[in-house]
Design a protein around this nucleic acid. Structure first.
Lengths: 342, 342
DNA sequence: TTGAAAGCGCTAACAC
DNA sequence: GTGTTAGCGCTTTCAA
């Protein structure tokens, strides 16, 4: 574990000179190029790497980003997996270490309070479900100088930049896709949550543009008894949706589900009733999860671009840390067509 | 950001005393209880928390564990997700911060070489697929004093303790389960990899115990052209398996797949051939992934106990860090029966 | 029972 | 151009 002192001794110069050379912090003055070269060579030869604790202690950056994750997406959608991987890669590319932690709710988040400080991390990235109850807490961290960015569906506050997804485009693209494939009566499943309105806006836009009617019957509410978000997006919700529609005598030739699991529930229920997918009804899901390939009919879906969003979020956070401004952005989703909408 | 000096000033004692009191490092001597109390009270009031960089720099622990993850399990099996979550919870419970990173192969792992040092972490936990090529590298880190534990299917080296799974039990329990449900000719899919032999041992044990014949035809090799492990465990491998068996005229009434995705491929192919599951053939998967509930017939499976293994691995690593010995262990898998083996 | 002082490895202001 | 010095916040010996 070579230190600056080792290099200084070997080259025969002072520690501070070595530090300045290796950090390119020469201010207005210079170094003799050949000396600088010898210093760099020695550092390389000794496999020198700054002691992060010492750097941090002497007032510098830590090069540590705190990543706090709330379980997102339903089990198996791969959402967390891809997000973490994306964050991890982006952090590595920017020479940042990651301090990862999971939390389940706002109470649990508060437990982390002690370590949410400048002494533990340079900035904080919140991932997953928004917790509006946390806003004041978060703003107080920010007041104390800790930069914060989020990776949520929607920004949680104007001052906390977010890497989101264009929710209107999700509604529009999925609907356009089904229209293109010949659907005329397209069901758009409605779950609870802040993004639904925008998705429906996109849905309606596409309908209007194609000159199709916007029948309220085609906007059925998915209402599981439970409060578990997870179940509202699960396969059972899809089965119930189909059952409800058919019971009410609603006719339809396309279904846009709010998750892949829900879409698979839809497909399974249709199959149980001998309704062919995609022959009689086309079905599309959301998330482009690994489930898509395991469904009895490979499932079309729309991708949340999680790796890209993760990378974007990291860049935003780094901007904030550098003292630059950063604004929320919404990435564009990408539609992946498979057999279920063929 | 209160420091020891702030507390010392307020109480009117020296910094070193405060340090010793708060760390309970009084050696053989003592403090006046009431003084200790005042120090502790002051620390609490000031919301004091040690500066981790300073602690690390002055030679103490960092309370940072490096977690290096190789993508494991097939996409969507939730393996990584559960593992990370388990590791994260266990680390938090033990007041350890987590330094997470992903790697894709041994070359990529080497890229991390610079930060695999005592100055960045107290210990290293390797998660995912074993890379035997890395053993010498890992041992060299260990020589330099960095404790290492692994969370692999199999230990990678005698000196690197591993939190594994009883692979014989996997073979035995799945087979016993199918026998119990009345199966007499049970197919056991054979993929490549180090654990297969043990799983087959378990399979044979169960057969023998039930007095069933061990027909080599029932041990078909899954051999995708590709080198992608991922495909060897994917749904297509399951479809191909069934197709191959039927082509060869092999009769069977049970199938044990090596992953849930493979099992779903098996079920889908059987369905395509109008063979009823579980009526004519019972099928069981492995991993107890979220896929199980999305299959057209809810899939029985066997759980890899990832959260428990993660916790075990963290404890092992902490033992090593404390200078204690730690030995590899194998946890017991747990069978979850669902409709596909009813 | 308590305090003083050195040192962990680094940065940055200032002096030469 | 380069070196000296102080200091970041803590732990730990040693002295009182």
């Amino acid at each position: 574990m070579a230190s600056l002192r080792d290099i200084a001794d070997e080259v025969g110069v002072s520690i501070s000179l070595v530090s300045r050379v290796l950090n390119n912090r020469m201010g207005s003055t210079g170094v003799r190029p050949e000396l600088a070269e010898r210093i760099r060579a020695s550092a390389a030869a000794m496999n020198y790497l700054p002691n992060p604790a010492a750097v941090a202690l002497s007032g510098g950056r830590q090069n540590v980003l705190g990543i706090f994750i709330h379980r997102i997406g339903i089990d198996g959608s791969g959402t967390i997996e891809r997000t973490i991987e994306g964050v991890s890669l982006a952090a590595r590319a920017n020479h940042q270490r990651l301090l990862t932690s999971f939390y389940t709710d706002d109470d649990d988040f508060q437990q982390h309070d002690p370590i949410i400080r400048k002494t533990f991390m340079d900035g904080l990235l919140l991932v997953g479900i928004r917790h509006p109850e946390l806003v004041s807490k978060l703003l107080s961290y920010r007041e104390r100088g800790l930069p914060i960015a989020t990776l949520h569906d929607e920004p949680i506050h104007d001052d906390l930049p977010n890497a989101g997804l264009d929710q209107i485009a999700i509604g529009r693209l999925t609907t356009e896709h089904l229209i293109e494939r010949g659907c005329r009566r397209i069901v758009f499943a409605c779950v609870r949550g802040i993004v639904m309105e925008q998705r429906i806006t996109g849905y309606r836009k596409a309908l209007r543009h194609a000159g199709l009617v916007d029948d309220p019957e085609l906007l059925p509410k998915v209402r599981e008894q439970t409060d578990q978000l997870h179940e509202e997006y699960g396969p059972e919700s899809g089965r119930a949706l189909v059952a409800g529609l058919l019971e009410r005598g609603v006719t339809f030739d396309g279904v846009i589900a709010q998750s892949d699991a829900q879409a698979i529930g839809v497909i399974n229920e249709l199959a149980a009733r001998r309704i062919d997918v995609p022959g009689q009804v086309r079905v599309i899901g959301m998330d482009n999860s690994p489930h898509c390939l395991l469904a009895r009919v490979p499932l079309s879906s729309i991708s949340g671009q999680l790796r890209e969003r993760a990378s974007t979020a990291i860049h935003m956070l780094l901007q904030l840390i550098r003292g630059e401004a950063a604004a929320s952005v919404n990435l564009q989703p990408r539609l992946i067509a498979r057999e279920s909408t063929a």
